[in-house]
Design a protein around this nucleic acid. Structure first.
Lengths: 209, 209
DNA sequence: TAGATTGTTAATCGATTAACAATC
DNA sequence: TAGATTGTTAATCGATTAACAATC
């Protein structure tokens, strides 16, 4: 569903507008960021279940709040993080997590050298503690920041413990059964898309030269 | 175009398979990662312009190469990076960039304290040098890793210099004219989507409880 | 009031899947 | 040869846009 992909961006735009003190926003304004029709935005908003006012548009804070409720980021989601390397450490200290309703409850690493160290207030736990922690905290999301070759193994491990949402930062495509949501964050994808765009552009300008 | 979004993932999967020494892959196997029909994969492959062999499938290395050509990552794209903070510095040293055909030619920061420092082999340049560098290197991509509030300004600046592809890591939605491609990398989006999924799941299990 | 903007139904467009022949 | 898998056309499904009434 494309609507669902746009909604987090709306939220971000509305946060920025709120900070600038804007009160209202029109569907036309929101649409221009996505290069889509403003009808599309109004339809997206109706999915969220929010109502605007003819002539003035949508209340910035009202719509932002409705999106937060819709996405479930206004309530807390518990998470664990596995793999305390460079990226993992950065994520642990990233303030954006709590801003979006994520509450880290524990961090893990299979390397004994890293265990018992404290990072961002968390003591790094051994993988053996995984089962116990997931069960006692009712963990919703597992964040995977282990090296590429270890990622699928870790994924299988947490799925076994009944985790249903995985946020994968290892540069590999994880596979899990359809009832588990895997979000693969992968910088190479963005890079590849930009590269393709530039290539097409060059080809076109060659034709019209 | 959804096909275009899947293609970089195919590339990643094929790289992994190549490393493991796999020779052939079927459309069915590729399809299962995306939870789509295998017909879809065959259609995607036809867009790339590659041919498989009935019964055996697609050559892993052959298809990988064809995707590389299609995406333009087999040839070099020049890039600059603006904003040498924590994330910017990490990106400069990230080996994945060159793996996907990106060649960094210069890095910038508006903070005089950071200028003249050397990071990953690059001397940090002042913003004043932007124009000169872009013109003399025929720069294709601008990577923006400045703080949120500075991002749109930097975006306008590089668009003025005729840059047509922007890779934005600042957590804000940049806007540019339709002929400029902006890729917004935004962790909050992934988080929001996972959160929504969990919320929906909870609601459903409440209904069927 | 007139004009701007929302909300919604119908029409169009694009993406996905079904069906099946071609082929190794 | 028989079976598996590709490639492609037709059918279906979903997302986007066009049209327009409702309303502040």
């Amino acid at each position: 569903m494309q609507t669902l992909r746009r909604i987090p961006y709306y939220h971000q735009i509305l946060s920025d507008m709120e900070q600038k003190g804007e009160q209202f926003v029109s569907s036309k304004y929101l649409a221009h960021f996505f290069h889509v029709d403003d009808t599309q935005v109004r339809k997206d908003v109706s999915v969220i279940g929010y109502k605007g006012k003819p002539k003035s548009g949508y209340s910035v804070s009202g719509l932002k709040g409705a999106i937060g409720d819709f996405l479930g980021i206004n309530t807390e989601n518990t998470a664990i993080l596995i793999g305390v390397g460079r990226l993992g450490s950065a994520l642990i200290e990233y303030p954006g997590l709590s801003e979006y309703g994520l509450k880290l409850v524990a961090v893990f690493d299979s390397n004994p050298v890293k265990q018992d160290k404290v990072i961002g207030g968390f003591t790094v736990l051994p993988m053996e503690s995984l089962k116990r922690v997931i069960q006692s905290f009712d963990v919703g999301i597992a964040i995977i920041t282990v090296p590429k070759n270890a990622a699928q193994g870790v994924c299988d491990l947490v799925v076994e413990q009944n985790i249903k949402a995985i946020w994968n930062f290892a540069p590999t495509q994880l596979s899990a059964s359809a009832d588990v949501t895997v979000r693969n964050e992968n910088m190479a994808v963005g890079l590849a898309l930009l590269s393709h765009y530039l290539k097409k552009r060059k080809a076109e300008s060659a034709i019209f030269a």
